[in-house]
Simulated assay, not measured.
Amino acid sequence: MAGRDRIVQLLRQLERVACRCPAHSNAFHQGAAEPCTVRKTDYAFEMASSNIRYGPGVTREVGMDVAALGARRVCVMTDQNLASLAPVKTVLESLVQNRVDFSVYDQVRVEPTDASFAAAISFAKAGLFDAYVAVGGGSVIDTCKAANLYASHPDNDFLDFVNAPIGKGLPVKGKVPPLIAVPTTAGTGSETTGVAIFDYEPMRAKTGIASREIRPLLGIVDPLHTLSMPSRVAANSGFDVLCHALESYTALPYHQRAPCPPSPQLRPAYQGSNPISDVWAEHALRVVSKYFKR
């Protein structure tokens, strides 16, 4: 494996000729905030993720979790492929057993767009939900994050919270209702992040929304759900793990990223490689090497 200094050197060479669109640029996108004048590069990293519950069959507990939140009306989001499969059925059965009122939105688009986000947002606004459960892969979870955010901030325009320079990148003021994520694939990690990625079709660009406020309250990781994955989805999940581990390990180290954010609240979701992420990235690569082909 190449040395860290050599990897950083290669990344800097790539950066000089890299695409500058929001999907690929390394620059911070924090709207109109002034950069820090004390330091040129960042000096800290922060790990802000959701609580995770892991175990075979743990999905059966989601109804108890929602009931404990005191939620009166819950939105369950999924896609049409999953709507009739075991993960969604288990979630709905658990909600019924715990006498939780819910409505299902199963029109999530795989690889979501601004238009598919808008449709989910309209459903969420009309439903007046006070809690959300996302059952699916990264597309479902990201769509649910966006629907939850805009339904609880109905006076904001769509581009207000979208990352700059496509959107305004405004900070989210005020809390959003709790969201419980039940991933049915392995590799995206969307159940742990405050990021929602989508294709902005007017500009043919991939961008997203990033805020700690849209992080799921809880990620319920049930390995039994991998049994219902089609073989191609399982293979793509493996590639997802491989790519994310490589990207994390070869990312510019956090203390070399510029400019330094002027306040902790403006530190981005993705902050560069760090001693903790390196440990997990290396472990993920070992797991992929051992099990991916099998």
Rank of each mutant, 00 (worst) to 15 (best):
Glu15Leu: 07
Tyr43Ser: 08
Ser50Leu: 08
Thr250Val: 15
His255Gly: 04
His255Ile: 01
Ala164Ser: 15
Arg72Val: 11
Gly70Gln: 04
Ala269Glu: 11
Leu252Pro: 01
Leu285Arg: 05
Ile7Asn: 01
Ala2Val: 06
Leu242His: 02
Arg286Val: 04
Glu61Asn: 08
Val88Arg: 10
Thr113Cys: 07
Ser248Ile: 11
Glu93Ile: 01
Pro35His: 10
Ala186Phe: 12
Pro268Asp: 05
Ser25Gly: 09
Lys145Pro: 12
Gly3Pro: 02
Pro202Gly: 01
Ile214Glu: 06
Lys206Gly: 13
Ala27Tyr: 07
Pro262His: 08
Arg12Cys: 13
Lys175His: 07
Asn81Lys: 13
Ala196Lys: 03
Tyr270Ser: 15
Phe129Pro: 07
Thr37Gly: 10
Ala205Tyr: 02
Gly187Ser: 05
Ala67Gly: 03
Ala134Asn: 06
Lys173Cys: 11
Ile52Gly: 01
Arg6Asp: 15
Leu242Asp: 10
Gly189Met: 07
Cys21Glu: 03
Glu93Gln: 14
Thr185Leu: 02
Pro56Trp: 01
Thr41Ala: 13
Gln9Phe: 14
Asn51Glu: 12
Ala284Lys: 09
Gly137Cys: 09
Val133Leu: 15
Tyr254Asp: 00
Met47Arg: 11
Leu218Val: 10
Asn236Ala: 06
Ser84Phe: 04
Ala210Lys: 05
Asp106Val: 04
Ile141Phe: 01
Pro165Arg: 11
Phe129Arg: 03
Ser263Tyr: 09
Arg72Pro: 02
Leu10Arg: 05
Ala284Met: 10
Glu34Asp: 13
His153Ile: 05
Arg4Val: 14
Trp280Thr: 11
Gly167Val: 08
Cys144Leu: 08
Ile52Tyr: 00
Lys206Ala: 14
Gln271Lys: 14
Lys125Asn: 01
Pro22Trp: 08
Asp101Met: 12
Gln80Trp: 01
Met64Trp: 01
Ala44Thr: 08
Ile166Val: 15
Phe102Lys: 00
Ala181Gly: 11
Ile166Glu: 02
Gly3Trp: 02
Lys89Met: 10
Val162Tyr: 05
Val74Tyr: 01
His283Leu: 13
Asp101Leu: 09
Tyr132Arg: 05
Met203Ala: 14
Tyr54Ser: 11
Ala146Glu: 03
Leu82Gly: 07
Asp199Val: 02
Pro171Gly: 10
Val100Gly: 07
Arg212Met: 03
Lys293His: 03
Gly187Asp: 13
Ile166Ser: 10
Ala164Thr: 15
Leu82Trp: 12
Cys36Leu: 00
Pro22Phe: 03
Cys19Gly: 01
Gly174Lys: 09
Ala118His: 05
Pro35Thr: 06
Leu227Glu: 08
Tyr270Trp: 09
Pro112Lys: 02
Val91Phe: 03
Lys125Cys: 11
Gly3Val: 08
Gly238Trp: 05
Ile121Arg: 07
Ser50Met: 09
Pro275Ile: 06
Arg6Gly: 04
Trp280Lys: 03
Tyr200Pro: 00
Lys89Ala: 15
Met77Gly: 04
Ala205Pro: 00
Pro202Gln: 04
